[in-house]
Write a protein that binds this DNA or RNA. Structure first.
Length: 221
DNA sequence: CACCAGGCAAGTA
DNA sequence: TACTTGCATGGT
């Protein structure tokens, strides 16, 4: 799979993810972008930044209702306000209210803790681990499943854990590699692997020995 | 107008 | 275990 990464990197160039200046900002962005375009989530992050709310203490202090109003543009704002509250409460209680304290722990116990928070599932947990805390965890998302399934690397109904193991088994545990690899897959998915339209003609993975299947599942070259 | 976007949890059978 | 539904905005 490292060959595929090099191919993507050559095609798209470095992606320098995650947009965000601090670990907390990245974690907040990970929650706000759940099933939501980054453009919409990013506006909500900017609103929080303008109101100087990007700290554990201020996010704990602000009333949930007001928080929900500020993050309106990211959609699901009532749920996401509750999820942000749950996350910052967890950081305060378990890590002295500091993301830097979280960094000292290994990724495996951290992952269990994150998954136990209501509103943090596998993708959000792994995004926080990789992009905010620099842990060598591979992030799987809708693009990853679609790209890998269409190129017949995995079954279309592969679980999150299966997709994650697929990469972990074939790559060195390198956070910087995982970081840019995931970003490359998203770049590929956005341009060549749309949900409905087949757009495989110029796909940079066309010649790696796998087919690119149409959305229907019918074979394609 | 329909569909999509860097998911997750709770409910039902 | 295996589906289904609610959550909600903004762009194409």
């Amino acid at each position: 799979m490292i060959r595929i990464y090099r191919r993507l990197h050559r095609f798209f160039g470095p992606q320098h993810w995650w947009p965000g200046d601090t670990p907390l900002e990245i974690a907040v962005g990970a929650i706000l972008t759940q099933n939501t375009s980054w453009a919409n989530a990013s506006r909500a992050v900017s609103a929080l930044k303008e109101h100087r709310l990007l700290s554990i203490a201020s996010l704990e202090r602000i009333p949930e209702r007001r928080l929900a109003r500020l993050i309106r543009s990211s959609g699901y704002f009532n749920q996401k306000a509750a999820r942000l509250k749950a996350f910052v409460r967890y950081v305060r209680v378990r890590h002295s209210g500091r993301m830097s304290v979280m960094k000292r722990k290994g990724w495996a116990p951290l992952r269990e803790e994150l998954l136990s928070i209501n509103g943090i599932g596998p993708e959000t947990a792994d995004s926080i681990l990789l992009y905010a805390l620099n842990k060598p965890v591979f992030v799987v998302d809708a693009y990853t499943r679609r790209v890998l399934a269409r190129h017949s690397f995995v079954a279309p109904d592969a679980t999150y854990e299966e997709l994650q193991r697929f990469f972990l088994k074939r790559l060195p545990a390198d956070a910087r590699l995982f970081n840019d690899y995931h970003a490359q897959i998203v770049a590929l998915g956005k341009e060549f692997c749309r949900p409905t339209k087949p757009q495989c003609e110029e796909c940079p993975l066309r010649k790696v020995g796998r087919l690119c299947l149409e959305p229907s599942g019918a074979g394609k070259g």
